[in-house]
Design a binder for these strands. Structure first.
Lengths: 230, 230
DNA sequence: CGACGGCTTGAAGTCCCTCAATATAAGTGG
DNA sequence: CCACTTATATTGAGGGACTTCAAGCCGTCG
């Protein structure tokens, strides 16, 4: 608990960062550390006990699985991000690890009590929920674009921005955090279309691929042009 | 203020319902009532002064306008709903009245002070933000479906559910809250496709149209079948 | 009445999906 | 180390669904 918090890599950015040392220690006692292997499920749709978690390391995806087994990705969680609801009686979506991940998990009722006890925590989670709404709407903008070219360009640009150190410039080289299939599941496309669009961009000199996941971005301006126009 | 709150139609359901009478009176003093005509803009993308509002009567849309003037609808706000962010420096999207609407508007900084003063208000807004995230993800599920048939069916079903008195059964007859163009802007389709899909459902006996906005739902089961399968 | 905006309907073209084959990479066991 | 397997990507051909472009319909309002 205390020890874990002291060494926590997201201790300055996660929601609990608004608490002082003793408060954080108390919160730490009601949570538990969980490690997840890639593909492992944290929450399952329909789970009765509401729960939530702060992501410490790794990456998660929020998945909606349709009746026919078709998968759709509704959002990604990055370190310091918060996932799960504690007001709803049932979990609505699956939460799955994309990579090896470490989380700080809380029971929903414990967290409800905690936000009553620590008002600053409630405000921090509110702030985070508001940015989650914006992120969700950004993805919505992407997916409802009529053209696959724009969807893929927008997603690649988002990944390049996320991989960059500076907030404004996209990274020149980075690894895709998602497989082709997962990218397709985010954008509402097929694997083949995603692959073809990336191939087309490589042919046009906008980027080049190294291995399955590696991207070298040669012309960020053209990429962001594709993401907005045409 | 007090008078307005006492007669407020959403006084039991809005975020401020968690406050007691005196607290609500104090909150009422820092807000102001605003009436909007259809099409009138409440917040504009890029607005510097962060602001937020509780919708008392009517309906709002959250709109993202692309560079070429193409409109995309990211969400709808219903009475007792809350809109706007107070942590972000700039407004990201336009908020526009769909019908004649009445709102209780707060400056962002005033609201920030209010949630520090009233922890219960922060929790209520957190709860609401979490449901907003879910609503946004529901729309995301709809728009990323590959087939226009499913998108339109899903949207009609959502409207039928929203128009119903009982929470589980869709209304048998209701008016569409959106024009064809707005429905298309929600789903990432063209007006023509939306129109054709509705025509096809009428031909199949699932529903019938009365006027431009009226819908009589004959076979809710088939409609929800379309929204999930096929 | 005539104009206008929203809706519907039609015809043609394009883009994406489906189906299918091949390629590449990583992992397993002999 | 290599054959074999499995999972992931790429590439091709064909067909279908949505878009685009265009015309006509219907209600409202000047």
């Amino acid at each position: 608990m205390s020890l874990a918090c002291a060494q926590c890599p997201v201790r300055d950015r996660a929601a609990c960062a608004v608490l002082d040392e003793t408060e954080r220690g108390e919160l730490g006692r009601i949570g538990r550390m969980v490690d997840l292997a890639p593909g492992e499920v944290l929450f399952r749709a329909g789970d009765e006990a509401p729960a939530c978690a702060t992501l410490v390391e790794g990456a998660l995806k929020i998945v909606d699985t349709t009746a026919e087994g078709f998968e759709h990705i509704l959002g990604l969680i990055h370190p310091a991000g918060f996932v799960g609801e504690f007001f709803q009686p049932f979990a609505r979506h699956e939460v799955v690890a994309l990579t090896r991940s470490r989380l700080c998990v809380f029971g929903g009722h414990d967290m409800e009590r905690a936000i009553e006890r620590y008002p600053a925590l409630a405000r921090a989670l509110l702030r985070r929920a508001q940015t989650d709404v914006l992120a969700s709407r950004d993805l919505l903008s992407l997916t409802s674009s009529p053209s696959a070219k724009r969807k893929v360009a927008g997603l690649l640009l988002a990944f390049a921005d996320a991989a960059s150190d500076s907030p404004c410039h996209p990274a020149a080289a980075f690894d895709l955090p998602l497989s082709r299939g997962e990218m397709a599941a985010m954008l509402g496309l097929t694997i083949e279309t995603v692959s073809r669009r990336i191939t087309a961009m490589e042919r046009d000199g906008i980027l080049s691929r190294t291995g399955k996941r590696g991207i070298a971005l040669h012309d960020p301006a053209r990429l962001s042009g594709l993401a907005e126009r045409s």
